[in-house]
Design a protein around this nucleic acid. Structure first.
Lengths: 344, 344
DNA sequence: AATTAGCACTCTGGCCTTGTGACTGCCAGC
DNA sequence: GCTGGCAGTCACAAGGCCAGAGTGCTAATT
């Protein structure tokens, strides 16, 4: 739908209404807008404008004789046309930088975990960070380590310091020698390719080997686990305590389902993967996202990048969230993360 | 305190009161006990008994003219003296066995994650499983794998199939040769010892080596991470959605703190570690546990064992939980886990 | 001496009523 | 095109009331 032809007044009313609603969570009346924002017109006039906005589907009344609240479309217009990012304070910047740049954090995983935490805290929403997309990475080497009778740890290393380990179960008869052989073949044939390419062409590339079939099969079968992350934590979700006291989660049953969703993680992982890795900030409002449990929520996401891979971070919170601030925070955090990773 | 000298009648009243309270979460009156449990005495008599029990601190009145509810001590006496474990149904047994014995589960970590899930579901409480105590394990080997410039993955394997991997950051100049050397020295000096012993005597044992000091230092410094679990998940907590709708969590602020506790995990990990590995079921009631956030909750824990290591599993839920059932479930699950691991 | 019936008293929770305040929509006048 | 005024609507808080559940105590009963 095209809302470019909103009058200046309509825009202003919508903007002020949303701003006020974000702060109070109460339906906003014409009077409040007239007084608080000194628009120089009377409540009655604003009422007329509000009726127009309601007909356009941008705001709605929870019941007669109540004020208005924004609809999803209302937020959409606000975000697309009216949003002015609010710059971070120095203190906020420092806080983010300090967490991300501290050299004591060991490994990407820990860094992402920390980042999701700070993101949650500073935004007062749910902070989310995703591990980099594995598919983009270029394989540097594969190691196979026997860790016990019948267990082999496979370590898949990717250019840029990413590594993923998967535990394989095997018949206990495999010898170290055979293992080295498999290792060698895998490395010869696959190193230097992107993981995405490997995934697509794996069985072709290994078709004509004369390796013990068992071991090879093992590797091929294990692929689902390689791609889905094995033991690694692919998504970090932190700060549920920040948002569950919001009135949006007053309904007990809704809350229950929400908590369950957080615990499962899988669905959210999919959601964030689907978020795509386009440049810059992406805002997904309410029912624009497919998960029923969080259709009164919005996502604000962005991506971090290094030379070799990229990943998604962002926040989740009630649609009634302070977008102008959050956009800046998420953007700044993603940028800091990108910087920090390029130094590593 | 010694409550062995409770009269038979007092015991019965306490037992019935707790049983009924567990079901309804409402204060229990003398009338209910007299009618429902047909003790053959009048409500008035029960009232007298209840007064005695109240003086002993086993039950209390939330307010005048309400029924009684058990105190922590009341539950304690119930659990110690009156509890009769309720055997599992065949269906429940099958459900647990099926999850634990399915061979498709890859690796101990995944198995424990599954187990905590089923434990949560079947008990309708919070299911918790802990990874085995590392200290007890006997080191079989250490591997050092370069995964990228400046990153080494250290894999510590322990007898019985346990392995833990820690990512080390290093100056980028380390050569593969030097790495092999370190690997060799570490293995020569440490293999065959228990991790606990290694932890205690690490610097002594490595004092007189002529290795590049840098690398060695790195290893020693990294120990905190080895012991605390590195990237591995040490505790699995599942089923928050089961218990948050219980009346015990009606208070919003309490709920918030509870959720926060779950998210942090560290505190709960400590709590479960402190739970000790004594044989059989341990029940911890209300304020007997040190964490303020869950002092209206109880823990029921047990341990699983293999030849080489052992770990803790259990559940967390409101003190008002069906102990007789839960005890059986936790015990059965721990036993099944032990069996499954001995087959692996 | 232990048990019980009876009774007065207390407190909670649900339910209804009422009143107030915050809105809107519309109309007539500026 | 805007605004003041006004009637109408609805949610919500406060107060009052009543029924129900439960106790403690005392006096009668076994």
């Amino acid at each position: 739908m095209a809302f470019e032809n909103l009058s200046e007044r309509e825009r202003q009313v919508l903007e002020h209404l949303i701003e006020h609603y974000i702060q109070t969570a109460d339906p906003v009346g014409s009077r409040v807008i007239a007084n608080k924002y000194r628009m120089g017109i009377s409540p009655a006039t604003i009422r007329n404008t509000m009726q127009d906005l309601e007909e356009l589907g941008l705001i709605q009344q929870p019941h007669t004789s109540a004020g208005r609240i924004p609809t999803d479309s209302g937020y959409r217009v606000f975000v697309d046309m009216l949003l002015q990012p609010e710059p971070l304070t120095k203190a906020e910047q420092d806080r983010i930088k300090n967490i991300i740049k501290q050299r004591r954090v060991k490994g990407l995983n820990a860094l992402l975990s920390q980042t999701s935490k700070i993101l949650g805290e500073i935004t007062n929403q749910l902070g989310v960070t995703m591990a980099p997309k594995f598919d983009e990475g270029v394989l540097t080497r594969i190691d196979l380590i026997p860790v016990a009778e019948g267990h082999i740890l496979m370590i898949v290393s990717v250019k840029g310091g990413l590594a993923r380990s998967i535990l394989l179960e095997v018949e206990s008869e495999i010898e170290v020698k055979a293992l080295r052989q498999v290792e060698q073949v895998l490395n010869e044939r696959l190193a230097g390719l992107s993981m995405g390419k490997i995934r697509a062409t794996l069985s072709d590339r290994l078709a004509d080997t004369n390796l013990t079939p068992k071991l090879l099969k093992l590797f091929i079968d294990s692929d689902s686990e390689i791609w889905s992350g094995g033991q690694a934590e692919l998504i970090h979700i932190t700060g549920a305590d920040n948002i569950i006291s919001q009135p949006e989660f007053a309904d007990r049953e809704k809350l229950r389902e929400f908590i369950k969703l957080l615990e499962e993680k899988k669905e959210l992982q999919k959601l964030f993967e689907a978020q795509g890795s386009a440049e810059g900030i992406i805002i997904t409002i309410g029912r624009e996202n497919p998960l029923a449990e969080i259709q009164n929520c919005s996502l604000v996401t962005s991506t971090y990048k290094t030379e070799n891979f990229s990943g998604t971070i962002g926040i989740i919170g009630p649609t009634r969230m302070p977008y102008s601030k959050l956009v800046s925070i998420v953007e700044y955090t993603a940028r800091s993360l990108t910087e920090a990773l390029s130094e590593m």
